[in-house]
Amino acid sequence: MWDQEIKGMASAHMFIASAVFVGTLLPAIVAEKFSVYGSHLVWVYSVAGSVAAVNVAVFWLLGVGLVAKKNTLSYKVSRMVRSGLHFTLSCFFYHIIVVLYGAPLLESVLETFSLAVLLSTFTTLRCLCLLGPNVQAWIRVFSRDGAMSVWDTSLQITTACSVIGAWLGAFPIPLDWDRPWQVWPISCTLGATFGFLSGLVIAPVWIHWHRKQLTYKSK
């Protein structure tokens, strides 16, 4: 049971991780003169799009995590709408946080917002897929000892890793190296992406390592 669940999670994570690479490679093949630094926003949205698509595919179509209570169309639609609303709100939330951290208020709004979208994709979207648009459940998962399943733990880890990655990504900006990746928000988006990828790797390993200590209360 344990091992099966961990293996399933590892393979799901592998799919999501490969989505990041596909999101990088695809525009490089399709579009001319594409580079991660040069046309950064294209890269950001392509990665965000592919990760979102794969996330939705893995968790919704394969039916991991979510157990739909009702199966009516109206319920599904309202769920979709609420999820979209939550996602948009989280984008604005991240945007505000980033501005509070010192991002320019008026200039390069689009860049800042792209970072917010990317972070939302890495964190909020996974929450939406796994927990649905249910804020109470989110609070439960992210409070101390709130994880109730392996997926909750993996959610905690990937979210924390993405956010910390973006946080660490801000550090090289003041250095006077004049590298292309020091331009706002490239280092932060790269940091978030690397954080997310490492979170995807760390989560199964960590859970496997600590499987003896992890005891989940049943729902």
């Binding site: 946080i97 509070l100 951290y101 010192g102 946080w167 801000a170 900006i173 003041p174 250095l175 006077d176």
Partner: peptide, 22 residues
């Protein structure tokens, strides 16, 4: 240790302070 971080030390403190608030 890095001269840029000394020149831009305020950035480190603002950054840390925002994190502290969060």
């Amino acid at each position: 240790g890095a001269s840029s971080f000394i020149e831009e030390e305020h950035q480190s403190w603002y950054f840390l302070l925002s994190t502290l608030c969060l």
